[in-house]
């Protein structure tokens, strides 16, 4: 890629590492959560569902602010991590991962939840009658039937993590190679009046986001095109 400085490249690599880490962790965490939200039978589903979708409407700075307080040296989590000898999370890559996971959670959980709900009860009844136990049903029926949801979850989770700014600003700061991601780098360029560099990075991000979404729409089976 032309027009990128070494610092831009560092920011690019960091952003990709962050997005990949967050997406993988969110899939591991979000799949059981979405499964429970889609098929659980307790009354807790609704409040938890509301909590999971909260980052969709919350200004990222609000989320970042509370995280800063919570994870900081005087916050509950901050004191715990200090006591465990992990130090505090704000202004570290790990802190950025935690914050990004919270912020991108609904973008992973919602497509998965919708996909699990769209399967309906019948395939699971059939599988049970054919001798498949609960875990077997999850891997042999739920996962293969929900794969368009997984595709959407991966693309949205990844792309949304790349695009975040407000949370990073609050909890990550702007440390090169640690927390200086692409969106921060673009902001720096604009602040410094380096519009050409800002243009280059912005264009790359725009093209990447479009390509990711296009790939997602092309790969989805037509019959599963329902929301």
């Amino acid at each position: 890629m032309a027009g990128l400085s070494a610092e831009d490249w560092t920011a690019f690599a960091l952003t990709m590492r962050l997005a990949a880490t967050v997406t993988v962790l969110l899939l591991l965490l979000g799949t059981p959560l979405a499964w429970w939200l889609a098929r659980g039978r307790t009354a807790w589903r609704r409040p938890v569902s509301a909590l999971v979708t909260l980052p969709l409407v919350l200004p990222p700075t609000v989320l970042g602010f509370y995280l800063l307080l919570l994870l900081g040296p005087h916050g509950a989590v901050g004191r715990l991590t200090t006591a465990l000898g992990l130090g505090t999370l704000p202004f570290t890559f790990a802190g950025l991962v935690v914050a990004s996971m919270l912020y991108s959670l609904p973008f992973v959980v919602q497509p998965l939840q919708n996909a699990f709900e769209a399967i309906g009860q019948r395939p699971f009844d059939v599988a049970a009658s054919l001798g498949a136990g609960p875990l077997d049903r999850f891997f042999s029926v739920a996962l293969p039937l929900a794969w368009p949801g997984f595709l959407t979850a991966v693309v949205l989770g990844f792309a949304h993590t790349i695009g975040e700014f407000g949370v990073v600003l609050m909890i990550g700061g702007n440390i090169p190679g640690q927390t200086r991601v692409l969106s921060m780098r673009i902001y720096d360029h604009v602040e410094a009046g380096e519009y050409l560099q800002a243009h280059a990075l912005s264009l790359y991000l725009l093209a990447f986001s479009f390509a990711a979404l296009l790939a997602m729409h092309l790969l989805r089976p037509r019959s599963a095109d329902r929301p």
């Binding site: 019948r122 395939p123 009844d125 059939v126 599988a127 054919l130 077997d136």
Partner: peptide, 20 residues
């Protein structure tokens, strides 16, 4: 006893084949 341990064969009213 859960369904998968009863060893029943169930044919539903409308086709219920796994689409995948």
């Amino acid at each position: 006893v859960p369904t998968h341990r009863r060893r029943i064969g169930y044919v539903f009213q409308e086709a219920s084949l796994f689409p995948h």
